[in-house]
Design a protein around this nucleic acid. Structure first.
Length: 379
DNA sequence: CACGATGATTAACC
DNA sequence: GGTTAATCATCGTG
């Protein structure tokens, strides 16, 4: 109907005047304000068929006013030149009459707001995105909370999350994403507000020459907001994607593999070679080892070692030892000697004149233990 | 950069 | 569920 055409054209002209937000505006410009689709640029149908009782002069007047309305709305609105015309229009002697006619037409055509789609149920997709962004620390509080949240997320996802160098790198990248996200979001919000106030002013202005209920304006605002939030959703989506990529790059355990510290390896090797007959530590033993390695490591630079890492280590060690015993003989001798010395010390401390016949693990049925001779050569 | 070492993952197995 | 064996992906080094 003509009302929607008027406003739609206004919004179009408004859109073209705000070139920096052209993309956003464009997607909104196509929205019919009354909920009807609008064929843009369509000429206003002549106001005929209402009453034939008027004289030619009166018809002429109404025609003039309508023409003025059209020309005003066709132009950009912030022009001072339009002011004069608008003023002239408002003071036109036929204005009240036309206004009431417009009201009547509006009523008849049922354009007054249908209370449709008042409540829009929260989009599950949007909620998912929101939750994820919140969990990743992208959305939500700026500094402290954000990093804490991201750390928590990392800990939750990575299991063995270490707080070392590459983690801070990850955080830096995450902060970068967050900044971009927030500036973009702010931009959209600002554009949305600007556009909304613009349209509201426009409608308010127009409500002097044609009937526009506050509810209609409200509805219009709702439509604009929905449009903008769909744009925001795109932003959120791409932000989520970026975070996911970042996460897979940095938090994938395989990618962030760090070698264990020398001390940790030493502890594990000590256990392995001193239990060569049965190098299968129990759950408790693994925990013990993990704790020991972590404690040793915590004094230097490194990460804590978990039970599952200990399991991995023993799994790898067993298979690699078995595969190539010769390669490990040197190492085996080293640790055998070490445990022997340790044991000797222990024994010496306990029994002073003990001759320390090294009580190395007796080996029965396990992996072949290296037997080394006095010259250090393997037999 | 090539290459071996090494931690992590996976499928198959018991 | 834990192990083995194979494999992947990265690290450290020459």
């Amino acid at each position: 109907m003509s009302f929607s055409i008027c406003v739609a054209q206004c919004t179009d002209s408004l859109a073209s005047s705000m070139d920096d937000q052209a993309r956003i505006m464009q997607s909104i410009g196509g929205v019919s304000l009354s909920g009807h689709s609008v064929q843009g640029g369509m000429a206003l149908p002549p106001p005929h068929g209402h009453d034939g009782s008027d004289g030619d002069g009166r018809k002429q007047d109404i025609g003039d006013i309508l023409h003025q309305i059209m020309t005003i709305t066709d132009q950009s609105l912030d022009e001072a030149q339009a002011k004069n015309r608008k003023h002239g229009l408002n003071c036109h002697r036929m204005k009240p009459a036309l206004f009431s006619v417009l009201c009547e037409i509006k009523e008849k055509t049922g354009l007054s707001i249908r209370g449709s789609q008042e409540e829009d149920p929260p989009d599950p997709q949007l909620m998912r995105l929101d939750n994820m962004l919140l969990a990743e620390g992208v959305a939500g509080p700026e500094k402290g909370g954000g990093s804490a949240a991201s750390a928590a997320a990392a800990a939750a996802a990575g299991g063995a999350a270490d707080s070392s160098i590459e983690h801070s790198d990850y955080r830096a990248k995450l902060t970068q994403i967050r900044q971009i996200y927030h500036t973009e979001l702010e931009k959209y919000e600002q554009a949305c507000n600007e556009f909304t106030t613009h349209v509201m002013n426009l409608l308010r202005e127009q409500s002097r020459t044609r009937p526009i209920s506050p509810k209609e304006i409200e509805r219009m605002v709702g439509i604009i907001h929905r449009k903008f939030s769909s744009i925001q959703m795109q932003l959120k989506q791409s932000t989520c994607e970026a975070v996911m990529i970042l996460r897979s790059r940095f938090l994938d355990a395989r990618r962030k593999r760090r070698n264990f510290s020398k001390q940790a390896t030493e502890i594990l090797n000590e256990y392995f070679y001193s239990h060569l007959s049965n190098p299968y530590p129990s759950e408790e033993a693994k925990e013990e080892l993990a704790k020991k390695c972590s404690i040793t490591v915590s004094q230097g630079v490194g990460s804590t070692i978990t039970v599952s890492q200990v399991s991995n280590w023993f799994g790898n060690k067993r298979i690699r030892y078995k595969k190539n015993i010769g390669k490990f003989q040197e190492e085996a001798n080293l640790y055998a000697a070490k445990t022997a010395v340790n044991a000797a010390h222990a024994v010496a401390a306990a029994v002073q004149n003990s001759q320390a016949n090294s009580p190395t693990t007796p080996n029965s049925g396990g992996y072949p233990a290296p037997c080394y001779q006095s010259d250090g050569r393997i037999q």
